[in-house]
Write a protein that binds this DNA or RNA. Sequence first.
DNA 1: CTAGGTGCCTGATTGC
DNA 2: TGCAATCAGGCACCTA
Length: 272
Amino acid sequence: MPELPEVETIVNDLRQRLVGRRFTNVAVCWAGSIAEPHLDKFRRRIRGQRILDVRRRGKYLIFSLLGDDSFVVHLKMTGQLLLRPATAERDKYARLVFDLDDGKQLRFVDMRKFGRVYLVDDPEAIVGELGPEPLTEDFTPEALMRMLRRRWGRIKPLLLNQRFIAGIGNIYADEILFAARIHPTRSADTLTSAEIEGLYRAIRDVLRQGIQNRGTTLDDKAYRDAEGRAGGNQDNLRVFRRAGQPCPRCGGTIQRIVVGGRGTYFCPRCQE
DNA sequence: CTAGGTGCCTGATTGC
DNA sequence: TGCAATCAGGCACCTA
């Protein structure tokens, strides 16, 4: 499940390789991957468009195109964007295959078919409601404190709420709360200012480390970078999917509970 | 505003 | 062994 660090890695790779390239054609293997516009219009509008830039907002990838359109992608659970030579073997779960003007293909591969692509004139129509980017400099401890002041729900679902902060998913939420020593069901309004500062630092550190390690690949079909390579951050996880194992900090036993319908891993001994 | 449920999907896991 | 039921999970959308 690609979250901010995984999408950041893919975006940085793709920017290097795709800026200046042109989409020459698209093969649609599963039309359901296209959110908008309708299939025929999508095909007509993407063909011949030159890529000016590739950037990330939350978990979305945004390709700015010369004709003022934006090609927007959300990978959801199992989506991948792979850059392959057009001659490369077909990927089993390929849903959309974009031919490029340099003999390569950008392949949208998505086993579970949750991912979506959009071709729109204004990307704000899609990403406009997202909360702040946690790694930009205007996201400060004070900003986080102000944001939390109006909230009284449990902290983990809040971290997962993309309108609250953009880019955090289930893996990094658990790792962040472990690093900050905060129990996933703590009410946001009971956090002390010291805890909020710790939470702030944990958000930044955990996400940055994820980026530094080029993302988290937990199993075979999970996240891959644009070259199809696994990330390295899975070796760095301290609680996620480690139920029954000893806490690396206090030696307690990591527990799995369900919070907001999501599998949640934490150490009951050092997270209050 | 929060919390809970459903649906979208399919491979992996679990149950009998 | 084999097949069916269940699970996982990001997010939209619904209800309370």
